[in-house]
């Protein structure tokens, strides 16, 4: 458990890393006593600072939702971060690499809510009822921690290693697909480099959205109509370099693509 002063100092270190794109040593090395509650407090300090500067919350992301990632970090539940309006990038556009430290691509089934989801007690049935539609999406994750040497506390403090997201503008009703069994292919410069399935996320991304609604309720937060929820990746993440073209294809959902310069 850290002191309020330490929370502020850690938040400032991450803020500056994000501003300068100069990654820092893991907080778990600089602050060995940091726990997950500290980490969420540090995340919120920087989110509040961005909101004060005019940013808007447009949704949330679930991280560490793949079993393999949880095993790698030695945790048994996902984490979450905030999606702000300045993180949304148009499909088909070119994103400058100067926005990132060490970006990687994930491909996800994005949920767009039509109704509020207020935990605790949100079930899978509530999520299905509250979902307006799903979209094909690419999340660009990034770590402000050098070489992605993250523990759970490091990624939570760093807004769940979020950076940007690209939504494909083709909506599909959740009731028209089996949300656990949407095959997904990640192409980098035309080549299929990863294949996966939407059920890589906790068995079904609907479960990830329910988990999120219940988790944020502990912080007094509600998922709002119009919010975008990124439930986690269908495949392993793929490193991105300048010049790369990343495309995601989903069974029944269509595709979405973006370029990096």
């Amino acid at each position: 458990m850290l002191s309020p002063d330490q929370h502020s100092a850690a938040a400032l270190a991450l803020w500056e890393a994000d501003q300068t794109k100069q990654s820092i040593a893991p907080l778990t090395e600089s602050y060995p006593d940091i726990d997950v509650v500290d980490a969420y407090e540090i995340q919120l300090i920087n989110i509040r600072k961005k909101l004060e500067a005019g940013a808007l919350i447009r949704g949330h992301k679930v991280g560490l939702s793949a079993k393999a990632m949880q095993n790698m970090l030695g945790v048994h539940e996902p984490d979450y971060g905030h999606l702000l309006d300045d993180m949304f990038v148009d499909e088909g556009s070119t994103i400058p690499m100067s926005r990132f430290c060490q970006p990687r691509a994930e491909i996800e089934v994005a949920f767009v809510l039509g109704r509020q989801l207020q935990g605790p007690g949100v079930t899978v049935a509530d999520v299905v009822r509250a979902t307006d539609y799903v979209l094909p999406s690419i999340e660009i994750v990034d770590s402000r921690v050098t070489d992605w040497k993250i523990k759970i506390q490091d990624t939570v403090a760093d807004n769940a290693s979020s950076a940007a997201l690209v939504l494909g503008g083709r909506p599909t009703k959740l009731t028209d697909v089996d949300p656990a069994l949407i095959g997904a292919n990640l192409r980098k410069n035309g080549e299929i480099v990863e294949t996966g399935c939407s059920g890589a996320v906790l068995g079904n991304p609907v479960i990830a959205v329910a988990w999120l609604a219940n988790k944020v309720a502990r912080f007094g937060v509600t998922l709002e109509p119009g919010h975008v929820i990124m439930p986690g990746s269908c495949t392993r993440m793929v490193p991105i370099a300048a010049g790369d073209h990343i495309r995601a294809d989903f069974d029944g959902l269509g595709h979405v693509a973006v370029r990096f310069a």
Binding site: A180, G183, A184, N185, G196, S198, A200, G203, D251
Partner: peptide, 22 residues
């Protein structure tokens, strides 16, 4: 599209891999 058929592989009820037809 057989290249986009999703697959979940489980051993003893635990997910061990996912893939697509591609």
């Amino acid at each position: 599209d057989l290249g986009l058929i999703g697959l979940l592989l489980e051993v003893d009820g635990e997910q061990v891999a996912t893939a697509s037809g591609a």
